Simulated assay, not measured.
Amino acid sequence: MATDASFPISRADALAAGLGDADLRRHYRRVLRGQWISGDRATTRDDLRRAALGLVGSDAFFTHDSAAELHGGITPTTDALHLGIPDDRRVRLPGLVVHRYLDRVPTTHARGFPVTTLPQTFIDLASRWPLVDLVVFGDSIAQQSATAIDEFRSAASAGRGRSIRKARRAAALVVAGAESPYETRIRMLMTLAGLPQPVVQHPILDRNGRVIYRLDLAYPEYRLAIEYDGDYHTNAAQRGKDLARREEIERLGWTFVVGLKTDIHGRPGQLLRRMTSAMASLGMPRPRLSDEWLLHFPG
């Protein structure tokens, strides 16, 4: 049985095209209720998205986590697909979360799919995601779009609802330049603990004024660098380069505090103590720490 680009296909469309139930069972497999795909290729995420739109209706659009994913932002892992509909009908389908929008919301297209706009997606996510995840998403989008921060803040300022205060706070914390989600998580740990805001991606210049290195987070006045050491650093060659780079910057008078993924998820308090100890050794004023970080970084 030949396939074509219109798949996934509904059972009704298959029958209208002259295919019987036996053909569907023999040559296709079901991906969502009433939606079938050719059995000779792997199911993709886009196949599931198209099937979901076919099930929910032509007026449906992707929202929340699914819109964030389509916009290219960094999101928590989720299998469920989130869709919106512009009315109050109840739609309950396995694997789908359908949100009802009684007021018209702005939509656009991303990767060929109907989605809520980036600012609307940001506002919607505030109702579902923790503050830190929302800022991680915002930072990742700000890397791609020079206007994203202003759009997030404008939408949050004009918005209303139970989660709008979180959206406003998250929008105010999104910055341009963050290069990894864990860099953002370390910055958020510092922010929620009440430490001064560091410079993001601070450049180190050579004698000719050329940028030779960039530090994840820095307090240039005190030459204190806060860096995230990622999983890719387990590569021996890369680790050697990173250590040589760090030693060269240390010779310029910089002090490093290095955070790992295990620090963020398992020892955030220890990482904060290492930061404040380094600040003290460099004569940097330190505010009294807030306990708010404990609400967002258990461990």
Rank of each mutant, 00 (worst) to 15 (best):
G177D: 05
G177K: 02
G177E: 00
E179A: 14
S180V: 04
P181T: 04
P181N: 08
P181L: 03
Y182S: 08
E183K: 00
E183N: 01
E183C: 05
T184H: 02
T184C: 00
R185V: 06
R185L: 03
L189I: 13
L189R: 11
L189G: 09
T191A: 08
L192K: 08
L192V: 13
A193R: 10
P196W: 06
Q197W: 06
P198H: 07
V200E: 00
Q201M: 14
H202A: 12
I204Q: 01
L205N: 00
D206R: 09
N208Q: 15
G209W: 08
G209Y: 04
R210W: 05
R210V: 12
I212W: 00
Y213R: 15
R214M: 01
L215G: 00
D216N: 10
D216A: 08
L217R: 02
L217S: 05
A218D: 02
A218I: 06
Y219D: 08
P220R: 07
P220D: 09
E221G: 13
Y222N: 09
L224S: 10
A225Q: 03
I226A: 08
I226L: 15
Y228I: 11
D229W: 05
D229Q: 12
D229C: 12
G230F: 12
G230S: 13
G230Q: 11
Y232S: 14
H233Q: 08
T234A: 13
T234Y: 11
N235H: 07
N235S: 14
N235W: 06
